[in-house]
């Protein structure tokens, strides 16, 4: 029962993330949608798999993959956003404030 709930929640989050990658206007807001895919969707699907297999060595290995995603996902999205800002990609017109471009032009 618990694994079914977690699996359905993960798939729903994945669908909204994929929809957000299409609908959001520029690079930075699209990165929000892709990080949401990884943390919300992939972590809950992996937790559903561990709850399905029970406490064995296989589930501990699946948890290791979850911890690696937890460590690697923010590093990659931070590197993408910083490189995009350094190489001169402007944020979209609806952006309210940009303090980083004001302090370090």
């Amino acid at each position: 029962m618990l694994e079914l709930l977690l699996f359905i929640a993960g798939c729903t989050v994945m669908v909204f993330g994929a929809l957000g990658i299409i609908r959001f206007p520029d690079v930075y807001t699209r990165l929000h949608a892709s990080t949401k895919c990884d943390t919300g969707g992939a972590l809950s699907i992996l937790l559903a798999l561990t709850a399905y297999t029970g406490i064995t060595l296989t589930s501990i290995k699946i948890l290791t993959i979850a911890i690696l995603i937890f460590l690697l996902n923010p590093v990659v999205s931070h590197a993408l956003a910083r490189t995009a800002h350094k190489s001169g990609i402007k944020p979209d017109k609806i952006t309210v404030v940009d303090m980083y471009a004001r302090d370090y032009p």
Partner: peptide
């Protein structure tokens, strides 16, 4: 890293 991992905020 913890700020970036939360959906909605992204450290630049």
């Amino acid at each position: 890293n913890l700020i970036t991992l939360t959906p909605g905020t992204l450290t630049i």
